[in-house]
Amino acid sequence: MDKINLLIVATIITSFISLLLIIFLLTVKTKDKTSNILFAIFLFLNAVDSIEPLFGLMSDRPTNLGIFRTTLAFFQIPVFYLYVLSVSYSDFKFKSKYLLHAIPFLIVNAVLVPRFYAVDAAGKMDFIVNRTSRIELQFIHILIHIQIIAYFAAIFMLLKKAKKLYVENNAGTHINSYNWLFQFTTLLSIVYVIAILKNIFKFSEYPDISEWIKVGIQVLQPFIICWYLFKALNNPDLFRNIDSKLKLVKDIVSEEKTNVSTAVNDEVYSEELLKLQQYMSEEKPFLNPSLTIQDVSKGIKIPVRDLSLLINHKLDQHFYDFVNTYRIENAMNILKDDSKSKVTILEILYEVGFNSKSSFNSAFKKHTGNTPTSYRKQL
């Protein structure tokens, strides 16, 4: 199979799978469709961008529609950024300021008006034939490369902050959602870096390399989409969002201004710590797999801000690890109990507040240095 045929086959497969996933995202029952709609738009934009080989079969001459289709690529990463924002924060809503993300797209199309959109067919052909010397196209390629780098940097910073906010305020096993989204973003960023290389070769002395890279990207895309589809189907409730109004503990500490002496502060924290430890031991709130710092705050009548400082700053533990310590200690007691020797590891992890075997094993090994099975055998 030659390069052209392989590219067309890969394009058809990618477009078909993208369409199926778009339909799934728009029809699946979920509490908040915003994230699904944003990802569906992202897939649609990618599909529109990737159908270039099919578009070329329909018309062998450059057209306004064809170049406009190409410029839609400037919406891809901004939409993905908004998607990540929407799955990270539960209070995400569309705001007028998000329209600013369309500025690069508008600039690019404005730049193309004089020597492409506004000229006749012959002028368009001349523009494309001499594309390597057209400053407009060079500007567009530089701009999209800057956009890709800037947005992916922003997305990784967003995920880092969201994950930290989660572990400081939640003790559920949905932390895996952020790990998965980080993996997906990393994979996607690699694809876009490869696309940047493709564009660099396109304007070099080796345009054939650019064409082969394009084929590689087209072949890779269906696998990435299928991976996402597999995850989505097996984890319909993939994300547990956090409130964007929450602040990182380091920010709270830096903002704190108090007139109370350190000795008094330490005394207050000691009293609150005893109150917290007693509540955790007697009431066992950690058995709730979706426990949040807000739940504990209500239980012991300590403001969330103070409780967050106590656990995350004074104890130097994330709320996530703090709660898991109690869960693991409870699990260890069950494993030591001879009368419960026939209770399976799976039953134990559910009993102590976990709902994921991988999360339980990771937390247990972090706390004891052994897996639950190895720990039981050593007793």
Results as ranks from 00 to 15, higher is better:
L7W: 06
K377D: 12
I51S: 04
I252C: 06
K93V: 04
E267A: 10
K365L: 09
K340A: 10
K198W: 01
K257D: 13
A118R: 00
D338E: 15
F80T: 02
S177N: 12
F44S: 15
L379D: 11
R69T: 00
I8W: 02
V296S: 05
F16Y: 12
K275Y: 06
I140D: 01
S50K: 03
Q218A: 15
F354Y: 14
K247F: 10
N199C: 03
L100V: 12
I300V: 14
M157L: 14
K214A: 09
V48I: 14
I217N: 01
F68A: 06
T30S: 15
L159M: 05
V253N: 06
L188R: 00
Q138D: 09
I348V: 15
L165M: 13
Q294S: 15
V28K: 15
S210F: 09
N361Q: 12
N130F: 11
F55E: 05
N170S: 12
F364E: 01
N36C: 11
A121F: 08
R131M: 08
S133W: 09
I140Y: 01
Y117G: 00
L238A: 15
M58L: 15
I41D: 06
L315E: 15
I328F: 03
A232C: 08
I8R: 04
S374N: 13
M1K: 03
D2C: 01
F360G: 06
E168D: 09
L309P: 08
T30Y: 05
D316F: 02
P114S: 07
L26M: 14
N46E: 08
M58T: 06
L165K: 13
E267S: 11
N370M: 15
V79C: 01
N324Q: 09
L335K: 05
T186C: 10
F139Q: 02
N355V: 09
S254W: 07
V343M: 14
R327H: 09
